[in-house]
């Protein structure tokens, strides 16, 4: 799994590439720690290049979202498709989080 961070105004856009499974999900926890340390509490997660996510990935996302919310921030999502989108739908994450089609819409929203 790879992360590409781009600062856009007061938001940090984080593009996640690869597979987010039980083996790699802890890397997301580490990224979240970095965001909070650098004061980046509005995070737009770009999932357009994420090939795969399991419940271990959902667990890391939820833990990160709780931490960001605790720091008066938020986590938004964009670019979901295929199985990643289905996993978000089945788990209720699609209803729980703000989901946008594109990064631009997420930044405007």
């Amino acid at each position: 799994m790879e992360f590409t961070n781009t600062k856009n105004g007061n938001a940090l856009v984080v593009k996640v590439t690869g597979r987010m499974d039980a083996i790699t999900a802890p890397e997301f926890d580490g990224q979240c720690k970095n965001w909070i340390e650098t004061g980046d509490t509005k995070v737009v997660v770009d999932l357009s290049e994420l090939e795969y996510i399991s419940s271990a990935g959902l667990r890391s996302i939820l833990a990160a979202a709780k931490k960001l919310k605790g720091a008066k921030g938020e986590m938004l999502f964009a670019g979901l498709s295929g199985m990643v989108e289905e996993v978000f739908n089945v788990s209720g994450f699609a209803a729980m989080f703000s989901i946008y089609k594109t990064i631009d819409e997420a930044l405007a929203g």
Partner: peptide, 18 residues
């Protein structure tokens, strides 16, 4: 409970639902 909000959501338990 997949309808709970971020604060009330339990971490974990989603694997078997999937």
């Amino acid at each position: 409970d997949t309808t709970a909000d971020i604060d009330d959501r339990q971490i974990g338990g989603l694997g078997l639902l999937l």
